[in-house]
Amino acid sequence: MTEYKLVVVGAGGVGKSALTIQLIQNHFVDEYDPTIEDSYRKQVVIDGETCLLDILDTAGQEEYSAMRDQYMRTGEGFLCVFAINNTKSFEDIHHYREQIKRVKDSEDVPMVLVGNKCDLPSRTVDTKQAQDLARSYGIPFIETSAKTRQGVDDAFYTLVREIRKHKEKMSKDGKKKKKKSKTKCVIM
């Protein structure tokens, strides 16, 4: 069974824990209790493949930012979460993405942009803004509501699919490099 290491990042209060708990335990946590770091595991079937999701729910508070490099190193894919009623959390996505790329030393890291709290009427981040940002990053965008469960499975499952595509691409690139290195030079 394939294991996928997913990391949920975003500013404090955007609903990272609520999304994760909704996926794992099928219930909505409405009281806000700032996370330092929590880890969850769940076995699911995605596109006919049974897999184990190892999900790291991270601290959004700035005082825990020193811990970010460590979990970013171990993560295979990242859910970059903002709240649709919090423009600052949307603007912060850029910083999370840049930090992930720096730590992973790669421009090509599996990510999904997630606009959470889409059940709320007080939207300050337009869907088109988020779609445009995701398009500019070359990553999928999904709106979710941890409260109603809308888009929750889709967000995590899409990230797994992005990781699969990335692994497939990397193995193809690896095979191309191996083929090239088999060419021999004969000096007579």
Rank of each mutant, 00 (worst) to 15 (best):
V125G: 09
V125A: 07
V125E: 14
V125C: 12
V125S: 06
D126M: 08
D126Q: 07
D126K: 04
D126S: 11
D126V: 08
D126H: 10
D126Y: 08
D126R: 04
T127L: 12
T127G: 11
T127R: 09
T127C: 12
T127N: 10
T127I: 11
T127Q: 11
T127H: 09
K128S: 13
K128E: 13
K128T: 13
K128V: 12
Q129H: 13
Q129I: 15
Q129W: 10
Q129A: 12
Q129G: 06
A130P: 04
A130H: 08
A130C: 15
A130M: 12
A130T: 07
A130I: 15
A130L: 15
Q131T: 06
Q131W: 03
Q131L: 11
Q131N: 08
Q131F: 03
Q131D: 11
Q131R: 12
D132L: 07
D132S: 09
D132K: 07
D132R: 07
D132T: 07
D132P: 01
L133Q: 05
L133I: 09
L133E: 09
L133M: 12
L133G: 05
L133F: 14
L133S: 08
L133H: 02
A134W: 08
A134I: 02
A134Y: 04
A134E: 00
R135C: 05
R135E: 12
R135F: 07
R135I: 03
R135S: 06
S136D: 04
S136K: 14
S136H: 06
S136P: 00
S136A: 06
Y137T: 09
Y137W: 14
Y137E: 10
Y137L: 14
Y137S: 06
Y137G: 05
G138D: 12
G138W: 01
G138F: 00
G138Y: 01
I139A: 07
I139D: 06
I139E: 01
I139P: 00
I139S: 06
I139R: 00
F141N: 00
F141H: 03
I142R: 01
I142G: 02
I142Y: 04
E143A: 04
E143D: 13
T144P: 00
S145G: 04
S145N: 13
S145C: 11
S145A: 01
S145E: 02
S145F: 05
S145M: 03
S145R: 02
A146L: 10
T148G: 07
T148R: 06
R149I: 10
R149C: 15
R149Q: 01
Q150V: 14
Q150R: 11
Q150A: 11
Q150P: 03
Q150S: 03
Q150L: 04
G151Y: 00
G151P: 01
G151F: 09
G151E: 09
G151W: 11
V152S: 07
V152L: 14
V152N: 10
V152E: 04
V152W: 14
V152K: 08
V152F: 14
D153C: 14
D153A: 13
D153W: 11
D153F: 12
D153L: 14
D154W: 05
D154R: 09
D154E: 13
D154H: 09
D154Q: 13
A155M: 12
A155I: 12
A155N: 02
A155T: 04
A155F: 01
A155P: 10
A155E: 01
A155G: 06
F156Q: 02
F156V: 15
F156L: 13
F156D: 00
F156G: 04
F156C: 07
F156S: 03
F156W: 07
F156K: 06
Y157F: 11
Y157R: 12
Y157M: 14
T158Q: 13
T158Y: 12
T158C: 09
T158V: 04
L159R: 00
L159C: 05
L159W: 00
L159D: 04
L159H: 00
L159M: 03
L159Q: 01
V160Q: 03
V160M: 06
V160D: 02
V160P: 00
V160E: 04
V160C: 03
V160L: 06
R161S: 00
E162Y: 02
E162I: 02
E162P: 00
I163A: 01
I163G: 00
R164D: 11
R164Q: 09
K165H: 03
K165E: 12
K165R: 06
K165G: 05
K165I: 04
K165T: 03
K165Y: 01
K165V: 04
K165M: 09
K165W: 00
K165S: 07
H166K: 06
H166D: 12
H166F: 12
H166T: 06
H166L: 10
H166I: 10
H166Y: 14
K167H: 11
K167P: 02
K167W: 03
K167T: 06
K167D: 12
K167N: 12
E168M: 01
E168L: 09
K169Y: 01
K169M: 11
K169A: 03
K169W: 14
K169G: 07
K169I: 13
K169T: 06
K169P: 01
K169V: 15
K169C: 12
M170G: 07
M170Q: 08
M170D: 07
K172S: 08
K172R: 15
K172D: 11
D173K: 03
D173C: 00
G174I: 01
G174V: 04
G174S: 13
G174W: 01
K175L: 12
K176L: 10
K176I: 02
K176P: 10
K177D: 15
K177A: 07
K178V: 11
K178H: 05
K178Y: 03
K178P: 09
K178T: 12
K178C: 13
K180S: 15
K180L: 15
K180W: 05
S181E: 15
S181L: 03
S181P: 04
S181Q: 05
K182W: 04
T183R: 06
T183M: 01
T183W: 01
T183V: 04
T183Q: 13
K184R: 02
K184S: 13
C185M: 02
C185H: 15
C185E: 15
C185A: 15
V186M: 02
V186C: 06
V186Y: 01
I187C: 14
I187H: 15
M188E: 15
M188T: 14
M188H: 11
M188S: 15
M188W: 05
M188F: 01
M188P: 15
